[in-house]
């Protein structure tokens, strides 16, 4: 298992990267962490003619945390994001989801933006982007675009990034202190891709009642599936009946494929179970956040 030959460029500037990508067009591929790409190359399931290694561009590794936003550069490693206390405070869901991404050694090299750009529907971060309406900044030689989570994923391994372009940044707004989030998943082995995973977000209104509730499912459809269950949960506090009702509603709205690890029926069951657990956990986290603030 050895990669086929390719041309390799490693520009030191953003402009250099964009020029190289533009020149390569459809034959080009960005190499950031490479933790998903290189296995595909070694198995010769992918053989781009040009690899544009972006790891030498200094400002690509920037992780900026402002009072309003978290901005993640394209060579920020999962592990850096996961262990950043400031990120954990601003967007707790990132750390919650990242702790499920592969194993620490992979997280040391793999990049979060790369993981989103890879658009693997079983990737935890795809669901985070969709749920939180994160914004992907896509740059090419012809200009810069911003695409929100809901528009970014087009299909399995297919995103709004065109050939000659790359994701140069992913931005998340700081979560309101009334919002609680959670990520739960079931995988065959620890660290494996999820059979089903759920990111959940709950916003509390007055008097700790639920105002908004949304979940984003991964490993369930061709892209992350976001479902709003505010209609079912709005205005309630803790009530197992409503959690169950919301979870059933979510499960009834999806039709996941079966594969060698899990059947469609089992996945639907997991969607229900994990939606319930995810929502409950997000609710608890919301209460905790509100309590900390007070």
């Amino acid at each position: 298992m050895k990669p086929a030959p390719f041309e390799y460029v490693r520009p030191r500037t953003r402009a250099g990267v964009l020029a190289a990508l533009a020149a390569a067009g459809e034959d080009g591929k960005v190499l950031a962490g490479g933790q998903s790409l290189i296995p595909l190359l070694s198995m010769r399931l992918a053989s781009p003619k040009v690899l544009v290694d972006i790891n030498l561009v200094p400002d690509f590794s920037a992780l900026k945390i402002s009072p309003t936003h978290v901005e993640i550069g394209p060579t920020v490693r999962h592990q850096e994001l996961l262990t950043s206390e400031a990120v954990r405070k601003a967007v707790p869901l990132l750390a919650q989801a990242l702790s499920y991404v592969a194993h620490p050694v992979i997280r040391n090299r793999g990049t979060s933006v790369g993981s989103i750009a890879h658009a693997d529907p079983s990737g935890e971060l795809t669901a985070v982007l969709s749920l939180l309406d994160g914004v992907v900044t896509i740059e090419g030689q012809d200009g810069t675009r911003e695409v929100t989570g809901s528009d970014f994923f087009l299909g399995p391994l297919e995103s709004a990034i065109n050939s000659g372009e790359m994701a140069t940044r992913v931005t998340f707004g700081r979560l309101p202190t009334t919002m609680g989030t959670a990520c739960v998943e079931v995988s065959r082995r620890h660290g494996d891709y999820a059979l089903v995973g759920v990111c959940a977000a709950i916003v509390l209104g007055e008097d700790h009642q639920i105002d908004r509730a949304r979940i984003s499912l991964f490993s369930v459809g061709p892209t992350p599936i976001v479902i709003d269950v505010s209609g079912i949960l709005k205005g309630i506090r803790i009530d197992s009946k409503h959690w169950r009702e919301a979870a059933r509603f979510i499960a009834s709205s999806v039709d996941p494929d079966g594969d060698i690890h899990a059947t469609t029926a089992y996945r639907k069951n997991l969607v229900e179970v994990l939606s319930k657990r995810g929502l409950q956990c997000a609710y608890q986290n919301a209460l905790d956040r509100v309590a900390v603030k007070q």
Binding site: V186, R188, L195, H261, A262, T263, A265, Y266, N269
Partner: peptide
């Protein structure tokens, strides 16, 4: 036996 099979 996998969880999927046990559940079935």
């Amino acid at each position: 036996i996998s969880p999927s099979e046990l559940w079935q």
